[in-house]
Computed example of a mutant assay.
Amino acid sequence: MLSCPFPISDYPYITMAHGGGGSLSKKLIDELISPVFSNPLLDQRNDGASFITPGDSLAFSTDSHVVSPIFFPGGDIGHLAICGTVNDIAMCGAQPSYLSVGFILEEGFPTNDLWKVLQSMKRTADDAKVQIVTGDTKVVEKGKGDGIYINTSGVGVIKCDPPPAPTRVQAGDVVILSGDIGRHGIAIMAAREGLELETTLKSDCALLNEAVMSLIDAGIELHCLRDLTRGGLASGVIEIMDTASLSMEIDESTVPISKSVRSVCEILGLDPFYTANEGRFIAIVPATKQDKALAALRSHPLGNDARIIGKVSSGDPGLVTVKTSIGTHRILTMLSGEQLPRIC
């Protein structure tokens, strides 16, 4: 474990002066943040990063992270911030390359906690094979924030032609889910509210780019990809069907849900179909490619429980129904509010 080069004993908490653009700002960036992410592009110390991608089509995404608590079973806000943007780029059928990071720190935030977050981000970026090449840090007065917020933006090179998009979905396509749903949202809620579960439920927060690349490398025609974050599986498929002007039926019996998640949802009256994930996605592919797509996805550790959960049809535009275990059907609708706030 690297030791922190910043004099935490002198500044155990973030102060307003750390965001003032003066010597303490420079010390925070030069001695704490920049050494963690050091690489040739970042070390140029420009306001932005310049790089060459001759002849490539690029995907670009940005995301902000306000999760509470910032450290939770299975991850932390730093790990989540890198995964969030890497996964968004991967859903465009692209291999992520470069990220920017913006920190908003609250006066009084423990410097040691910032160091832990930075180390987590570095490990996750290295695992994703991406470089953090530019960024920004601001400090707000105590009481005007909640410790730390992080924004990450990124670019990646598109690896499939044409890239996946909701408008490419066709009637007859099948829907493949990469794994069990609901663990991130329930893990965050349990940590936040101090719920005592029989077993520690860990977030599924994970990098999805390699799992997506396994599909692309197998030559699968990807009509649409979607990571199932806020709003869960239900919101993701409804949004896709609404854009595609098609309908979908999901077989509830095929959707994997862990016993712990199912139990908590039943007790609290939550629907796991709407509960957030940070390491799960769906791939919508032609039915003729379903076996090949399943085999490719199951070859990756994050896809070893991948299953076909539904099929697209030309019915009512935007309609998503679920065939229940007792043979009835229910309609999935968008949430009117947010089931669990501050989960990403």
Rank of each mutant, 00 (worst) to 15 (best):
T254H: 08
G154I: 08
T254W: 00
G143S: 10
M334I: 03
A287L: 13
V130M: 00
G135S: 05
I216K: 05
W115Y: 08
G20W: 00
T254N: 09
S61E: 13
I33H: 04
T15R: 07
M241H: 05
P35E: 07
T152Y: 14
V322S: 12
I150G: 03
H300Q: 06
L246H: 11
Q290P: 00
T53M: 13
H223M: 02
V157K: 12
E193Q: 13
G19V: 03
S50F: 06
Y98F: 05
M91T: 02
A218E: 02
R262I: 08
T137E: 12
G315M: 05
V264Y: 11
I238V: 09
G182H: 06
N277M: 00
G310N: 07
D204A: 06
A244N: 03
A287F: 13
G318S: 09
S25T: 12
S120D: 13
E278Q: 15
C265Q: 11
L340Q: 08
T134Q: 12
R183Q: 11
D88N: 13
P286F: 07
D173Q: 15
A218F: 07
G318V: 13
K292S: 10
I158S: 10
T124F: 08
D217H: 01
P54M: 02
A59E: 08
S263D: 11
R123P: 08
I70C: 07
V312W: 04
N151H: 05
P5E: 15
D43S: 09
A94L: 01
N39S: 04
G108S: 01
P40S: 10
D56F: 14
A94P: 06
L208N: 01
V322M: 09
S245W: 01
I104K: 04
A206G: 11
R298F: 02
H79I: 12
L340M: 09
K144D: 12
T200P: 14
D204M: 02
E31H: 12
G108R: 06
H18W: 12
K159P: 03
S57W: 01
I8H: 06
T324I: 07
L225Q: 05
V66G: 02
E278K: 13
I257C: 11
I52G: 06
K144P: 08
N87M: 01
L2P: 08
Y149I: 04
L32M: 15
S235C: 14
D136W: 00
R298T: 09
R230A: 11
A306Y: 12
S64D: 03
P35V: 14
K142Q: 09
S336K: 14
G84S: 10
L195K: 13
